[in-house]
Design a protein around this nucleic acid. Structure first.
Lengths: 138, 138, 138, 138
DNA sequence: TTTT
DNA sequence: TTTT
């Protein structure tokens, strides 16, 4: 059993890539999930300029990845059901890097904002950068 | 909403530390959570010497931390309910290191093995090393 | 482990009552939670006039019950974290009736509509009907 | 989102039936899920002869239903991931009966007891009673 | 109608 | 750095 359920907001527009081999779509984004804090504790953290949310790297595969890229944008509220996965890879300096991320099995849109045109210009062809399979240090 | 539910086995005996200020107990361990794989996929990964489990750093606070240290041991099966948290700290080289870990709100023991005496000798006073508050790079 | 997570909409304004003994607040409402159906299956059910949602009786206690009564209304979207409980009681005919309901431990508001004034007039003093402890066949 | 996670013990051997049309397997059993009680509260309930567990009707479909029937038995510990569903049907007296049950999407065995031969004799061909589709008032 |  |  490895179950994760999150409700949070995208910190940026989602990124969309395609695996070179089979063209499988992969979307990644970070969710800001508010910590469940008392009013006092929240204010204390804000005054110390410490984060009052957890920031969780999220990965979506396949058809849902495309839906995310098409309909989600920075700030939008979503519910994610998935699992936590750990991966490791070797970086340029030959160090082993360990990654923990949420693999979304389902993404439920909780807001249907002003569509995707609101995304920044620089996103226009973001979705079409093919990536190398062994090279997804998200 | 930030909810995690895991069922897995401890990869080692749990570690127990105490915060210097108030003496709060903190227990940490890694859970090996089997990936939900088809028989074929599992065999494939085993033949490639790739892991068939996810390894998830888990932190428990307070009274439950002490219970974990007292009753759990390497290999024991537990269910954990908690949340995912992200933290960052600066390491000795001045690099910002980002950590993702599961903070357990409840740990349910699913096996009551051959008690804790089975732990290795070197564990005997493992539980009493006080640590510095800013120095918990688990 | 007894964990339930729901995202759904209130089918009516919440009801609020107070236990006679200690005045503890109890709020109850039913959540309509969309079934996760394919487009085809959904259409099929709609044509047969069968429900495409599950209707789940939900109970909230204490301070959160009052918040629900004050800020929620029919149609509002919420996330609920809680547990399933079973109860039984004897009805007027002396039959044992079995009830299954969701006890909410946390209710997260996902929409902040046009406030609570929109509630129907008949709700105005709904919140102040005391009830007998043994007589909560919700 | 309609998510349920339970860890509990079967109150009886699972029942196995087959839908008349297509022969789909359906297994049903009740899980006793311990309430998360303080020691005092637990003792209090026991002295009053009140249950300290919730009893949750669980339904499993297809291949997993057969696995449950083959490998589970009364008292065995399992983890269930699924959803809550509500149904209604008309009973012999023409009354509308409302049912709430857990539909298991995954059943994880947490104990591998003394096999299934331990089941009572009367179970021997329990699994082969075909049932009428409209007649599953579990 | 309830399990360890 | 990984468990059965």
């Amino acid at each position: 059993m490895n179950k994760v359920i999150l409700i949070g907001r995208l910190t940026k527009d989602p990124e969309l890539r395609f695996l070179p081999g089979n063209g499988t779509a992969v979307s990644t984004f970070t969710l800001a999930v508010d910590k469940n804090l008392s009013k006092d504790k929240k204010q204390e953290l804000e005054m110390q300029n410490k984060p009052t949310a957890d920031f969780l790297r999220t990965v979506v595969w396949g058809k849902q990845a495309e839906n995310c890229a098409n309909y989600l944008a920075k700030g939008r509220l979503v519910a994610v059901e998935g699992r936590i996965e750990t991966r490791s890879y070797e970086n340029a300096e030959g160090e082993r890097i360990y990654i923990t991320e949420v693999v979304a099995e389902r993404v439920q849109f909780l807001e249907f904002g002003d569509k995707k045109e609101t995304s920044s210009d620089s996103d226009i062809n973001k979705g079409f950068v093919p990536v190398d399979d062994e090279d997804i240090p998200f």
